[in-house]
């Protein structure tokens, strides 16, 4: 019968004999609620997967790092090469993230607020670093700036080393992190449209004031979220950076590369010590994101409300 789901939700309205019997044997529940068994099985599966694939490896990293005690951990952390790797990683992130913010805002702005030919192509291109293998990204830079590369000799003539040097690492990192901020902002800005900016302009605000006081506050949560993800990736990137770095200890080894080098030398404690820092970074990123979402839930929701 076509109206049976309706009756199932509101049995008291139809006091028929058959229905009363049905109600006493089968417990009625809202249409979208599943049986308890299914509920608990799904929860158990999810928890199991999380434990197996996320929590266990994370715990293992810290266990391995502290296998020979806190002192060994501390010593490997103070190793000259380790300190150099940490510094390099921070430097790379400090360059890549601001570049990403500027590019992300500019790209999202022009995509969300203007109509122009080739717009959909640009949107797809922004996703390219996500779809292409990081190794390929690294190789592209080697081909471009390497000794036999397209621009390599020219750069060399001016005394600029790109490949097997810090500039190459920065370039590769910028390439792989390019979509983060833009991807976060494009849908947000498209949804918001240009009316708020028009309102600010009609009230006499100039371009810069409109941007600083209306556009930026409207996108700040999306921007912050994009920056967090971008930073995590910039510090953790391995593939692309590995191709262009040349693995020169204490010079061009970032933290992920340093982990690999140490691990290949069977120096497990030192490898996991650096790895634990990277894992810690991931945890801090997650915690910050959760904190932001919790602290500013109203405002975040507010920016989506018209």
């Amino acid at each position: 019968m076509s109206d049976s789901p309706l009756r199932a939700v509101a049995p008291p309205l139809v006091p028929s004999a058959t229905l009363t019997r049905a109600a006493s044997t089968v417990r009625l529940r809202p249409a979208t609620e599943d049986p308890p068994v299914l509920k608990y099985v799904l929860i158990a599966v999810a928890v199991l997967f999380l434990a197996l694939f996320l929590v266990l490896p994370l715990v293992a990293v810290f266990v391995e790092a502290f296998r020979k005690g806190a002192e060994a951990y501390w010593t490997s952390l103070q190793d000259e090469d380790a300190v150099a790797a940490i510094k390099l990683t921070l430097t790379v992130a400090a360059i890549a993230v601001p570049v990403n913010i500027v590019f992300g805002i500019a790209a999202a702005w022009c995509i969300a607020k203007f109509e122009f030919p080739g717009k959909s192509l640009l949107v797809s291109l922004i996703d390219l670093p996500f779809s292409v293998s990081p190794v390929v990204a690294g190789l592209v830079y080697v081909l471009l700036f390497g000794a036999q590369g397209l621009m390599g000799p020219t750069m060399k003539a001016y005394g600029i080393e790109v490949i097997f040097a810090v500039p190459g690492i920065v370039l590769a990192t910028i390439f792989v992190t390019l979509p983060f901020v833009a991807r976060e902002l494009i849908p947000l800005m498209e949804e918001q449209g240009t009316t708020d900016e028009e309102a600010a302009l009609s009230l006499g605000a100039g371009g810069l004031k409109t941007f600083m006081r209306v556009t930026l506050p409207n996108i700040k949560w999306g921007l912050l979220y994009g920056v967090l993800l971008c930073n995590a990736r910039a510090m953790g990137e391995f593939g692309a950076v590995s191709v262009v770095s040349g693995h020169i200890r204490g010079v061009t080894n970032t933290m992920p590369l340093q982990v690999e080098v140490l691990y290949n030398e069977y120096n497990a404690v030192a490898a996991f010590t650096i790895a634990s820092l990277l894992a810690l970074l991931a945890l801090v990123t997650l915690a910050l994101k959760a904190l932001l979402e919790w602290r500013y839930a109203d405002e975040i929701a507010g920016t989506h409300r018209r």
């Binding site: 009316t195 708020d196 028009e198 309102a199 409207n218 405002e299 507010g302």
Partner: peptide
């Protein structure tokens, strides 16, 4: 100018 959607600054 009063916009149809009001365009009030939410923040």
């Amino acid at each position: 100018f009063v916009f149809q959607s009001y365009a009030l600054f939410k923040h």
